[in-house]
């Protein structure tokens, strides 16, 4: 199943929303710049930068990939690490 609308129709409908969200992001980053101190070494800032790169690329599944940037990694061997025995 896909979207019920054409791409131009989606852009017409969502342009102002997208514009507002990009502005919100830009303003938040400006706010960080104006504040005292520095967060340049904060891992969260690196994650935000990575997420913005994903938003700007042209590959599919941007939302899924952004989610993974902000996620702890899954390790297959978690049961052994935690000592949890399957029933």
């Amino acid at each position: 199943m896909s979207s019920a609308a054409t791409a131009p129709a989606v852009l017409d409908r969502e342009f102002l929303d997208i514009r507002a969200r990009v502005l919100e992001l830009a303003a938040a980053l400006d706010r960080l710049d104006r504040a005292d101190g520095s967060v340049g070494g904060d891992a969260r800032m690196a994650a935000i930068a990575q997420a913005i790169d994903i938003v700007r690329d042209s590959k599919a599944d941007r939302a899924e990939r952004v989610q993974l940037i902000f996620s702890r990694p899954y390790e297959k061997g978690w049961r052994q690490k935690l000592g949890v025995v399957p029933r």
Binding site: Q67, F70, S71, R72, P73, Y74, E75, W78
Partner: peptide, 10 residues
């Protein structure tokens, strides 16, 4: 949030 992916897979 950051625990969802790992926790869902577990």
């Amino acid at each position: 949030l950051e625990d969802k992916h790992q926790g869902t897979r577990m």
